[in-house]
Simulated scan of single mutants.
Amino acid sequence: MITETAPPRSHGAGGPGQRRRPSHPRRPTGRLLLFALPALLVYGAFFLVPTVQAIQYAVTDWDGISEDYHVVGLANFTNLLTNDDLFTGALVNNLKFLLVVVVLQTGLSLLYAMFLTRNSRSSILLRALFFFPTILSSVSVGFLWSFVYNSPDGLLNQVLGWFGLPGYAWLGDARWTIVFVGLAQVWFHTGQMIVVYVAGLQQIPRELYEAAAVDGATRWPRFRYVTWPMIAPATTIVIAYTTIQSFKAFDLIGALTSFDDFKTQILSTQIYLTAFQNGRFGYAAAESVLFVLLIAAITVAQRRLVRATEVR
């Protein structure tokens, strides 16, 4: 009986005895880069070009309308830093606003998040309730708090009246007005920061707390040496976001108070008034450049401060 044997199969490049070549990720081709082109065009048109133009106009006296303007060099920056009480006042107000918002919003969001870390029904419901103001527009929040602060018939004054206490002009005292505006900002965005902290707290291994409990650590040492270092990345996000929002509270202040009210002016509203009310676009561009540099410097300083406590 004759049996036919199948011819031996030839092994390819990946067969036995032969080493496969390591596969390298393909570099993006021209066709793939075309997908990013629309986003790059939008980014360039609405960010890069205005940024370059702002730097260009910052050294001129352009009024925003005329085709002709004169180059004044660093005169705008010199006047801003040495002889502009409006800009200095707006800067001081913005720093007060920043201090109130960053301290209260960061502290409250972390405190609430520590009580709402578990994914129980009550915790999820409370997170949703705290997050609800975030989905509102800044203008609606400003109008809402204007009814709360309104004098003499606002909500707060009505509550004071129930206890026989006199009303108070909440937005009338120049020393405290920016603080009360900051409280509205805290109510507006605390729920959003709670979500960030809850996510950070849920990533901490439970074994660390168990080991700390075995060593006899009480609540404060556990928070100081376990919780706080482990949530440093979340704190960096919260503080950076809160800082940027504090400098961008333009529409909240516009709805809550008048743009012409000096005691509530911050840098963003001052830039708006300089450009569109006074027609000094070149000077407003110089204010914008200093504005961006200030935000960058504060954000970098905060990031370094928080990262010093981060677990590596």
Rank of each mutant, 00 (worst) to 15 (best):
T257Q: 08
V292S: 01
A296Y: 08
F276Y: 15
T274K: 04
F291D: 00
I244E: 04
E287G: 04
Y283C: 03
V238F: 13
A240Y: 07
T257D: 05
F281A: 11
S268V: 05
N278F: 13
S246C: 09
N278D: 03
Y272K: 07
L290D: 01
S268A: 11
D261E: 14
F250E: 03
G279S: 12
Q277L: 10
L252P: 00
Q277Y: 11
V289D: 02
T242I: 13
I244Q: 09
K248D: 03
V238Y: 06
T269W: 01
Q277F: 11
K248T: 02
A286N: 04
I253Q: 06
F276V: 15
A275Q: 14
Q265L: 13
E287S: 09
L290G: 04
Q277W: 10
S258Q: 11
F291A: 00
Q265W: 09
L290W: 06
G279Y: 14
Y241N: 07
Q270D: 03
L273D: 10
V238M: 09
L267I: 02
F276H: 14
A255Q: 12
F262Q: 12
Y241T: 12
Q245R: 13
Q265H: 13
A275H: 13
Q270F: 10
S246P: 02
D251F: 13
A284M: 06
T242S: 14
Y272L: 11
F291Q: 01
T264E: 06
A284F: 06
A255C: 12
T264Y: 09
L293Y: 10
Q277M: 09
D260A: 15
G282E: 01
S288I: 05
Y272S: 05
I253Y: 07
A255H: 10
F262Y: 11
F250C: 04
L273I: 12
A275D: 10
D260Y: 15
S268Y: 02
A240V: 12
A240N: 10
G279N: 11
S246M: 06
A284S: 11
F291W: 00
L290T: 03
F250T: 02
Y241M: 14
E287A: 05
L267Y: 00
F250S: 02
L290N: 04
V238R: 05
Q245M: 15
A286I: 06
L267W: 00
N278E: 10
F247I: 07
A249W: 10
T264Q: 10
